[in-house]
Nucleic acid binder design. Structure first.
Lengths: 227, 227
DNA sequence: ACTATTTTTTAGATATATCTAATTATTTAT
DNA sequence: ATAAATAATTAGATATATCTAAAAAATAGT
C-alpha cells in the first residue's frame, strides 16, 4: 500500500531533483521535518518497492514508477490549489495548506472533475505548472527576480507558495503572475532591489526576490526573431 | 492527536446509539470491519481520552466531547456528499465513498465554504439531516417503507447511502427523497411490496424497503390540524 | 441451577513510521 | 595526508492500530 508518507517522500525527492542533480538524505530530512535516520530507513523501503534507485552514501533517483506517483501528487496539489481559489473563494495564501492535506486523499474521479470544472488548466494560482494526467509539465525558462539587472522590464510568472505571510505581502504590493515589473535600481552586494509595479515603487530584499520568478528577457523592446 | 481511526469509532458509536440504547463491542467491530479485540483496546483508549463512558462487559456511551467530534465528522460527510453532487456533478451513488475518505481531512475553512456555497443546507442527497455547526440535527419521525400498509400514500424522505448498487437501482425507479409512493398491495410474511410511483408499478423485496424511510402518515387526505 | 453458547477481554505478535544515540563513511581544510 | 567536520547509516526503542488464539464473563436454554 502506498501510504501518505511514501507520497510525501516521492514528492520531495522529485522537487529536489528538479533543481540539484544529486538528492541527499540531509535535504530530504530537512524538507520533511524528520531525522536523517528516518529518511535512511524510508529510502530502503522505497528502493524495495522499486520507486527509487538508491545507492547508500551516494544519492537517490526516482524510477519511472516513482516519478509517476510524484507527478500525480503534484497534479493533485496544484489542481486543488486552483480549485480552492476559483470555486471556493480561498485567498492565494490559504490554498497551500489545505491542498497539502487533501492531495493524498482525493480520488481520480475528484481530480478529473476538478480539471473539467477548471477547463484543464496549465498553471496553479502561484504560477506553478500543473502536470497533465500523463505526467507532462509545461516547463518554462524562468529566472529569479534577484538575478535581474537594473533597467529591465520583466513579467512575473511564478512565486513560491510555501509561506502564507510572504504571499499576503506580495498580494498587497500587487505582485502576481502575469504582472509586469520595472527594475529601477539594483543595490550592490545583494542589497534591496528598487522596482516599480503598476505605478507604485517598492524596495525588496533578496530573501523576497529569490522567491519570485520572472521571464528571462525584457518583456518589451525585444526585437522579433527574423528568419 | 485525534486520528482518523478515533473519528471512525466515534462516528459508528454515535450512529449505533441513535438506534439501540446499548452499544456493544460486537456491533462496532462488525461496522468497522475489525476484530472485537481491536475494538476493546480502542474503547480503552477512547475512555482514557474522555470521549466515551466505558464499562467493561456492559456498553459504551459517548461523552459530550465524544459526541461533538462524531457530529463534526457526520457534518463533514453529509456536506461533502451534497457538495460533490451539486458542485462537481457526482451521481448520488458515488458520493458516499469519496466523502468517507475526505471527511477526516478537510479543514473548518473548507467546511464553512462548502456550507456557504450550498446555502447552509439541512439534508444531504440521500435525505439524511446535516448537523449544524453547533451540533443540532433536524430530526424527523420517519418509518421504514417495509412497515407501511396497503392503501397508504407516503413520501420518501431518506434512503440508505451505503450501497452504491442499491442507489443506482432506486434511481432507475425514480425513488428519491420527496417523491410520493402509493402502496398498492402488501404480500404476507414479509413478501414483496407492490407500489406505484410516478405512474409506474414495482414490486420491492423487504431488504430494499427496509432501507427506504418515509413519512409516517399518509401524505394526502390528512385533516389539517384545527386549533 | 447448571450447562452451553455467545460476547468480551486479555495476552502476545505484527507492521509502519518514527525517534535517539552511537557508529561508519565521505568530504574539507590545513 | 591526516585531522576535523559533515553526512549517512545502523541498532535499538517507541507509539499506534491492528491481528490471532486463548481465557473469562455474561446470557440463554433446559
Amino acid at each position: 500500500m502506498i501510504t501518505q508518507s511514501i507520497q510525501d517522500y516521492l514528492k520531495v525527492i522529485y522537487k529536489l531533483a528538479v533543481n540539484r542533480k544529486q538528492v541527499n538524505t540531509n535535504a530530504i530530512a530537512e524538507r520533511l521535518g524528520v531525522t536523517q535516520a528516518s529518511v535512511t530507513s524510508m529510502l530502503k523501503k522505497l528502493s524495495e518497492l522499486n520507486l527509487i534507485e538508491y545507492k547508500p552514501y551516494y544519492g537517490v533517483e526516482l524510477t519511472g514508477g516513482g516519478e509517476k506517483i510524484a507527478l500525480e501528487i503534484i497534479r493533485h496539489h496544484r489542481l486543488l490549489e486552483l480549485y480552492l481559489a476559483e470555486a471556493l473563494g480561498y485567498s492565494w495564501d490559504q490554498v497551500h495548506e489545505e491542498a497539502e492535506k487533501l492531495e493524498h486523499h482525493i480520488s481520480e474521479e475528484f481530480e478529473d472533475r476538478m480539471a473539467a470544472v477548471l477547463g484543464d488548466p496549465d498553471f496553479d494560482p502561484h504560477g506553478a505548472p500543473i502536470p497533465s494526467k500523463d505526467g507532462v509539465m509545461q516547463e518554462r525558462y524562468l529566472v529569479s527576480l534577484a538575478s535581474v539587472g537594473a533597467g529591465a522590464r520583466v513579467q512575473v510568472k511564478q512565486v513560491s507558495d510555501h509561506n502564507a505571510e510572504l504571499l499576503r505581502y506580495l498580494g498587497k504590493m500587487g505582485i502576481y503572475p502575469e504582472v509586469e515589473i520595472d527594475v529601477l535600481e539594483k543595490a550592490p552586494f545583494g542589497g534591496p532591489l528598487h522596482i516599480r509595479i503598476a505605478g507604485r515603487e517598492h524596495h525588496l530584499g533578496e530573501s523576497l526576490t529569490n522567491q519570485i520568478w520572472v521571464t528571462p528577457q525584457p518583456a518589451r523592446d525585444e526585437p522579433e526573431a527574423t528568419s
